[in-house]
Design a protein around this nucleic acid. Structure first.
Length: 599
RNA sequence: GGAUUCGUAGCUCAGUUGGAUAGAGCAACCCCCUUCUAAGGGGUAGGUCGUAGGUUCGACUCCUACCGAAUCCGCCA
């Protein structure tokens, strides 16, 4: 049984796998080939393409081949053995060609799943994994640059990273969420340069959104530079370079201005994270690691791992088709990749982590290949446990989003668009609810709409940002899932008013097709979260929840809970409803979403 | 030239690690609120899974080539 240790969240499949293994041994007359073990049996059990076919499907081709039998005959013999196994999970086994379709014993399923989802034990099955408990995983995400716009693309990163943290924690890992703020570099010098030389009005207390204002100055600086003729360009770059130096030397008026403006931006980030209910355990800052990164370069020049090339220093990786990893520019400053080396060392040494995950856009795939290879060559064992979760850009229907083209949308603008739309829907409650409740519900709905929109797509696909779709709350959307949740709560409230209690005594009455289907979706929840964790894909949870909600809403329409035919059936349906509500809430939590109780 | 991702219905996307007849949501058309929230449910229509080969009992899934879209590859992060 120890082979299936990691799969105990699915007792039915584990049990079926054992019966299958025994059945195979009988069919093989004692000697099974070594490549057929319990795990192979477990993985051979699949889901049929249609639920009317059964709960588990077993294609027999592979076993037939291994035991040198005809597939159809193999299936027949296995059916005979499974029928004789008296496994309580097996309802019936249907033979169809070389496929065996297994219907589980519904009584056993409902008995083993619904109580666990009601008392919460079902959600702890993955977290008890002992290996994961000992593994410290640092997940770095968000990494915003100060003095730059925080646009919707940055929002996708935050949603992804935060959800990943929750998913890893659910799977029992020791998770450390960290941020890495880009508070140093040319972009800041450019911003301050524009403020100093080319802005009519200085930054005062009167400016309402200071971070946004600074972001606009950065954009301004870029267009100024782009439009300048060659002579001007040289002059501008000298001015910018001087500002950069001043900041790095930590003295003078630009340093003072950096401190103040930097804080404005950090405050702005905090507001966004709070609104999103995203929290970090630790913040790293680029400005903290620049000194260490210079030392690293010296250290590895001395060890002759880094070599000089055209006045710059770096690591020649051309034999690995990774080009030249530049660690020090010819002017002596360090590019961001070098700071990543220094930061990785801090993570490994000071935080003693086992795994390191970087949530960064797909345009940096090449850089992370270089970085991980460099870390490996520098002797860090953990380099093998580094993973770059890359994700696609957020683009506009007409193409790439860019500040210059005037089609970029800041994350705050998105928030406002969605909040406004949500409030229109909530108008129906304006006489019933006080303002605080209206605001709170609007906030939850807007967060859910945005996060679901960001997470429902596969990470490495681009998201086409169309504002119209982000405020459409029908079908596959965050509000649809939250609405499904609210529907469970209103029934539970009604039940409470009437003094009706749920009961686990008559779960075997849940035989309606919509009930069976919903139960199956609940049963698959843990499997989905495990898959999402192993593949770094919150999107699979989002999709599974969507289909679970579809099953629930069908159930909702096809049968009545409170007006069930008998009291026993009503109590059983309340239990199923409760199990669904809990699971949906837990699933939404893993996406970073808190649903309102009523909407 | 090198690295990487994507191509599935008119549009936006799923497809649980190679399984059976390809799945949703928008948009279109038709039904269902005196019944637990219609931000809901059901139905109709819509497909040569970019193209061509290969691997095998079986390929949207894996391999190769090509076509198309995008990103990155020494002084921006």
């Amino acid at each position: 049984m120890n082979q299936l240790e990691n799969y105990l969240y699915d007792p039915a499949k584990c049990s079926l796998a054992e019966s299958l293994y025994k059945a195979l041994a009988v069919v093989a007359e004692g000697t099974l080939p070594p490549d057929i073990d319990l795990l192979v049996c477990f993985k051979a059990l699949e889901q049929p393409p249609e639920k009317s076919l059964g709960d588990y499907a077993l294609p027999c081709f592979r076993f037939a081949k291994a035991l040198k039998k005809i597939p159809n005959q193999m299936a027949e013999e296995l059916k005979r053995e499974l029928d004789a196994s008296s496994n309580p999970w097996i309802g019936s086994v249907i033979l169809k060609g070389a496929f065996l379709n297994i219907f589980t014993n519904q009584k056993e399923v409902s008995k083993n799943i619904i109580p666990l989802l009601i008392n919460g034990e079902g959600y702890k099955l993955l977290s008890s994994h002992s290996t994961n408990n000992k593994t410290k995983v640092m997940i770095e995400f968000s990494q915003p640059n100060t003095h730059k716009e925080f646009h919707v693309g940055h929002g996708r990163n935050v949603c992804l990273g935060d959800s990943l943290c929750r998913i890893f924690a659910y799977n029992g890992f020791n998770v450390i969420p960290v941020n890495y703020i880009g508070d140093e570099g040319t972009h800041i010098a450019k911003c301050l340069w524009a403020v100093e030389h080319y802005t009519g009005e200085p930054l005062t207390e009167k400016v309402e959104n200071k971070a946004e204002w600074l972001g606009q100055r950065y954009v301004e600086a870029n267009s100024k530079l782009k439009d300048a003729d060659d002579e001007k360009k040289i002059q501008y770059n000298i001015e910018i370079s001087a500002i950069l130096k001043a900041i790095e030397n930590k003295s003078g008026k630009y340093y003072e201005s950096w401190k103040i403006t930097r804080q404005y931006c950090l405050d702005d980030f905090s507001r966004i994270y709070n609104w999103l209910d995203v929290h970090f355990e630790h913040y790293f800052y680029e400005s903290e690691v620049s000194v260490a990164s210079q030392q690293i370069v010296d250290e590895y020049i001395a060890k002759s791992l880094f070599v000089e090339d055209n006045g710059a220093f770096g690591f020649d990786m051309s034999d690995k088709k990774l080009g030249f990893f530049m660690a020090r520019k010819s002017d002596g400053s360090t590019p961001y990749v070098t700071k990543d080396l220094a930061l990785a060392r801090v993570k490994f040494n000071d935080f003693d982590i086992d795994r390191s995950i970087y949530v960064v856009g797909s345009e940096q795939i090449f850089h992370f290949k270089q970085l991980f290879y460099a870390l490996e060559q520098m002797g860090f064992e953990q380099a093998k446990k580094c993973y770059h979760l890359s994700y696609g850009l957020v683009v506009r229907p007409e193409g790439k989003m860019s500040s210059r083209a005037g089609n970029s949308i800041t994350f705050l603008q998105l928030i406002n668009i969605v909040v406004d739309e949500v409030k229109i829907y909530l108008e129906k409650y304006k006489d019933e609810w006080d303002n605080a409740r209206l605001e709170d519900t609007a906030h939850k709905l807007a967060v859910g709409a945005i996060k679901y929109g960001m997470l429902q797509a596969d990470p490495n696909k681009e998201i086409v940002f169309d504002p119209k779709e982000w405020v459409s709350f029908e079908g596959n959307s965050g509000p649809y899932l939250m609405y499904s949740y609210a529907r469970t709560q209103s029934i539970l409230i009604k039940a409470k008013e009437l003094g009706v209690e749920l009961s686990l005594a008559h779960l075997d009455l849940l035989v309606h097709e919509s009930e069976r289907d919903l139960m199956r979706h609940l049963y698959d929840f843990n499997q989905t979260v495990l898959y999402a964790c192993e593949n770094y894909k919150p999107s699979t949870i989002a999709n599974h929840l969507f289909f679970t909600c579809k099953a629930y809403n069908r159930f909702y329409n096809e049968v009545s809970v409170m007006k069930a035919e008998t009291e026993d059936l009503r109590a059983a349906r309340l239990a199923l409803l409760n199990a669904f509500g809990n699971t949906l809430k837990k699933g939404l939590y893993l996406l970073g979403i808190t649903p309102p109780e009523k909407m």
